[in-house]
Design a protein around this nucleic acid. Structure first.
Lengths: 197, 197
DNA sequence: GTCTATAGGAAGATAGAC
DNA sequence: GTCTATCTTCCTATAGAC
């Protein structure tokens, strides 16, 4: 209780209303305490936000690594394709995912550098992890003509492009995009071009 | 002057600091007037924001259509590829583009429906325009095995995924992603899969 | 560790002089 | 159409009782 409840409520309020749009009153109200009680656990709004941010990115980082670890022996095609669905579910059911997306793109101006120091290591980790997975694939070199790191970057771009649609239009257009973009991506990384063949 | 100066300053402030993060004081200060003078031109903050939003989306809509019209006789490959660079330049030099991206993804909660009524027609127009361009291509059916509307959706996903990187990491990673993702996309839409060949 | 009370400031908005 | 002055409300934050 106490601190954890506040963190959870703050996670939701920040993710939903942004940094300036979320007030300590609204967070306290959601927990069921009074505003000044927050100061017994956190130094202030900035401190609360940054602690929530570190927590959210760490949690989401763990969940994503778990996803890939659990499926490391499955075919790459299914692992990557299902990841796009999985992230959609995460976004709808998991406030950490929502928080992460919002403040990766739009950190509060007053905390710009502090937030970037959380976001950048996260993205670097993702890129490395994904590149490693692509290098160790047991499929018979489905994209032997490409650098794994480029495939990783392109996949992360695909993920972002699809998540973005989730952000503004909800899940109908999200699925339209997913079904349109995935086959093109997969074809693009598995087929050898005529010039190279 | 007057109204136009206020619109321009508001565009910048909203795009940079978000809806709640931008104050009428800061907007007035940028114009060089006092806060109450804004009320001679706009009903209030919400009205100002929505008028700026309609302006920004309309302007960006025009610029994008212009881009495609000017190049309607050029090869599709160059038109699409260059569009990714062009959007990057727009984002860095054009506050309307910045505004559009920010509030497409994160509209102020209190104006959610009003903003969606601006964003959705914009996206629909983009999709139709792009689909039409793909249908009328003079290149010898480079993606005859795919529906133009799916190619359009996939391209818009690619654009979003790359723009998103511009939002949080600046132009270095933007170019890394562009160079990784574009060849995969183009290969994916131009090559015929072995099963269909 | 939570509360009431309150300070101190900034926000959006209005009234009325010029 | 812009100003000064002011209202109301909300914000972050602190003091001090329990």
């Amino acid at each position: 209780m106490g601190m954890e409840d506040i963190r959870k409520a703050a996670l939701f309020q920040f993710a939903t209303n942004g940094y300036e749009g979320a007030s300590l009153s609204s967070i306290a109200a959601e927990v069921g305490i009074r505003k000044p009680s927050i100061y017994a656990h956190f130094q202030g709004k900035e401190d609360l936000f940054l602690q929530v941010a570190r927590y959210a990115f760490q949690e989401q980082n763990l969940r994503i690594f778990e996803y890939f670890t659990e499926r490391k022996d499955q075919p790459l095609e299914h692992t990557l394709h299902d990841f796009l669905f999985w992230m959609g579910q995460e976004y709808e059911s998991n406030n950490s995912a929502k928080f992460m997306l919002r403040f990766s793109f739009f950190p509060p101006v007053s905390l710009y550098h502090e937030v970037l120091d959380i976001v950048n290591p996260f993205l670097d980790k993702m890129e490395r992890k994904l590149t490693r997975r692509l290098r160790n694939t047991r499929d018979r070199e489905p994209f032997g003509h490409m650098e794994p790191v480029d495939v990783a970057l392109a996949f992360m771009t695909l993920v972002d492009g699809i998540m973005v649609e989730l952000l503004y239009s909800g899940s109908i257009n999200y699925h339209r995009r997913l079904n349109a973009a995935w086959p093109i991506f997969w074809r693009g990384i598995t087929l050898t071009s005529p010039h190279e063949a």
